[in-house]
C-alpha cells in the first residue's frame, strides 16, 4: 500500500473502531475496569494515556534506528515511564482531586500492555508520521472506550454525567455500577453488543457473496 494521505488517515481510524484496543483487542483492561466509575475519571485516564501513548510512539519511532533490538523493550519502558511520571506530577499539581481518585492507576499506565504493544508492533517499525497517527487512533479508541464505560456507569450509578445530575435528586442510584462488578458487567455487555454488530455485519456480507440457491437452504 502506498503511503498516501488517505492511508495515514486510515491508520488513525482503525484504532478508533475496527481495531479498537478495548472492544476488539481487549487490551488495557486494568485501568478500563478500575477507574471508569465516573465519566470525569474516565476522561482523565483517557487523556493521560493519550499523552503517554502518542509521546512514546513519537519518540520510539524517531529512535527506532538507534535502539539495538536486544535492549528495545527496556528502552521503550524507560521512555514510557518518563512520560508517565511527567503526567503523574502534572496531574498532582494541577488537579489534585482527580489525581487522588485515580490513585495508583496513573503510575500503572506504564504497565498498560496497549502502550508497550503499540511500540513493539508498530512505532518501532514505521515512520514517525504513521507511528503518531496510529498512536492517536489507538489512544483515541481507548479514550472512546473509557468514556463509553464511564458514561454508562456514572449515569446508572449516580444518575449524573460529568457530575451534572440528569434525573433530579430522587434518583435511586444503582450502586453496583460504581463498584468493581459494575465495571465487569458494563464491559461485558458492551463487548456483547460489539460482537453482535460485527456478526450482523459479517452475515450481511456473506449473504451478498453467496449464490441464491445456497442462501435458501
Amino acid at each position: 500500500m502506498a503511503k498516501t494521505p488517505e492511508s495515514v488517515y486510515q491508520e488513525m481510524l482503525k484504532g478508533i473502531w475496527r481495531d479498537n484496543p478495548v472492544f476488539v483487542q481487549v487490551l488495557g483492561m486494568c485501568p478500563m475496569l478500575a477507574v471508569t466509575n465516573s465519566a470525569v475519571n474516565a476522561l482523565a485516564m483517557g487523556l493521560a494515556t493519550f499523552f503517554v501513548l502518542v509521546g512514546s510512539s513519537l519518540l520510539v519511532s524517531m529512535m527506532r534506528k538507534w535502539i539495538p533490538k536486544q535492549v528495545r523493550i527496556s528502552s521503550y519502558i524507560i521512555i514510557i515511564a518518563t512520560f508517565v511520571t511527567i503526567i503523574d506530577y502534572t496531574l498532582l499539581a494541577l488537579f489534585p482531586k482527580i489525581h487522588k481518585e485515580l490513585g495508583a492507576f496513573i503510575p500503572l499506565i506504564t504497565a498498560n500492555c496497549l502502550i508497550l504493544g503499540r511500540q513493539e508492533a508498530f512505532a518501532s517499525r514505521n515512520s514517525v508520521r504513521f507511528a503518531v497517527m496510529d498512536a492517536v487512533g489507538m489512544a483515541g479508541g481507548f479514550l472512546f472506550a473509557l468514556l463509553a464505560l464511564g458514561g454508562v456507569r456514572e449515569i446508572l450509578g449516580e444518575g449524573a454525567l460529568f457530575g451534572v445530575s440528569l434525573f433530579g435528586p430522587n434518583f435511586e442510584p444503582w450502586i453496583i455500577m460504581i463498584l468493581p462488578p459494575g465495571g465487569f458487567l458494563t464491559l461485558g455487555l458492551i463487548l456483547l453488543f460489539f460482537n453482535w454488530v460485527t456478526e450482523k455485519h459479517k452475515e450481511a456480507q456473506m449473504r451478498l457473496l453467496q449464490p441464491a440457491e445456497e442462501r435458501s437452504s
Binding site: E172, W174, I175, I176, M177, L179, P181
Partner: peptide, 10 residues
C-alpha cells in the same frame, strides 16, 4: 445478588 448489590437499602 444483582438487586442486593445494586439497591442495598431497598
Amino acid at each position: 445478588a444483582f438487586l442486593l448489590g445494586t439497591f442495598p437499602i431497598a
